[in-house]
């Protein structure tokens, strides 16, 4: 609400016959209006707010004779300064006269302050009759005073941040590029197949495990390879689901059949409690290695 501007237009078209309930029969031919606005409804007690009162009518400046605006009655507010101006405008080939009164108002202390209704007295030059217009009561909230501080350090900090940001903005891409060039020169990308083959060989060499346990681990690694290689989504990572997924995705039929064959062969040793001998293990292990190599070539 601090920045909010209440624009209170009290258009008192006297010709319409209603001025805050006052009947103005004698002024039926008048066309004069008054509007008030304040620049802020909440203001620190050491700052000012502008109250603008505009009296306007259609016609030349001498159409109405507006008396000096009386200072409004203020509660918990005080007037710090005032100014007024008068001008004429032509809109759609019609002359309009505008009288503007501006008052700078400041709260006396914290809390609510009020500007009571202001009365603008005028005389119709044509009829020589006098009348008046009255504005509505306005309120302004007085806030604790704001003590201006020394913010020069903020500017200094902003400048330092900009310099550092600009420096790193240039330096990081440069360093990254240098690093990637260096990496490209020294370390070629290891194919996923190679990583898994290394892992498989490590399992094969684990003499502390039985062949059945090694078969379990080898099949798990093979399954993980397929999941990574073909980005198998969650829920399709059991052996049957994986084969179904590959079939649904119109994957190479021969290769899918080969993978299924490996799973089937391994299954009866892994889950039936049957021990697997070294020859059988080597056979399945060899099939998995060959299958991974084939998958690698099929990219």
């Amino acid at each position: 609400m601090n920045k909010a501007v209440i624009f209170l237009t009290i258009s008192l078209f006297v010709a319409a016959g209603q001025v805050f309930g006052y009947q103005a029969d004698s002024l039926r031919t008048h066309n004069i209006s008054i509007s008030t606005s304040i620049s802020n409804t909440e203001i620190p007690s050491n700052q000012t707010v502008d109250l603008t009162v505009i009296v306007s009518w259609e016609g030349p400046p001498d159409r109405y004779e507006v008396e000096r605006l009386e200072n409004p009655e203020l509660i918990n507010l005080e007037i710090m300064g005032s100014q007024s101006l008068s001008r004429s405008e032509i809109r759609e080939e019609r002359i309009f006269t505008i009288r503007e009164f501006k008052l700078s108002i400041s709260p006396v202390e914290r809390g609510m302050g009020y500007i009571e209704g202001m009365t603008v007295r005028f005389k119709d030059s044509a009829t020589e009759k006098r009348d008046f217009l009255t504005t509505q009561r306005l309120s302004i909230k007085g806030l604790p005073p704001v003590i201006p501080g020394d913010y020069s350090w903020v500017w200094k900090a902003v400048i330092v941040i900009i310099v550092i940001g600009f420096g790193t903005g240039i330096a990081i891409p440069f360093l990254k590029r240098r690093k990637s060039i260096k990496e490209e020169e020294t370390e070629p990308e290891i194919p996923v197949e190679e990583t898994y083959i290394v892992e498989l060989n490590a399992i094969k060499g684990k003499n502390s495990l039985s062949y059945r346990q090694r078969l379990d681990d080898v099949v798990t690694v093979f399954r993980n390879y397929l999941v990574e290689k073909y980005k198998i989504p969650e829920g399709n990572r059991s052996e049957k689901a994986l084969i179904d997924y590959l079939n649904n995705e119109a994957f190479d039929e021969m290769l899918t059949a080969k993978i299924k064959g490996i799973f089937d062969q391994a299954e009866q040793f892994r889950f039936s409690g049957t021990e697997i001998n070294v020859d059988r293990f080597e056979l399945i292990f060899g099939s998995i290695g060959a299958c991974i190599e084939t998958c690698g070539k099929n990219v």
């Binding site: 059991s238 052996e239 049957k240 689901a241 299954e267 009866q268 889950f271 039936s272 409690g273």
Partner: peptide, 10 residues
């Protein structure tokens, strides 16, 4: 089948 596989459970 004379043994249970994970697929049976699933």
């Amino acid at each position: 089948r004379g043994y249970v596989t994970p697929e049976d459970v699933r």
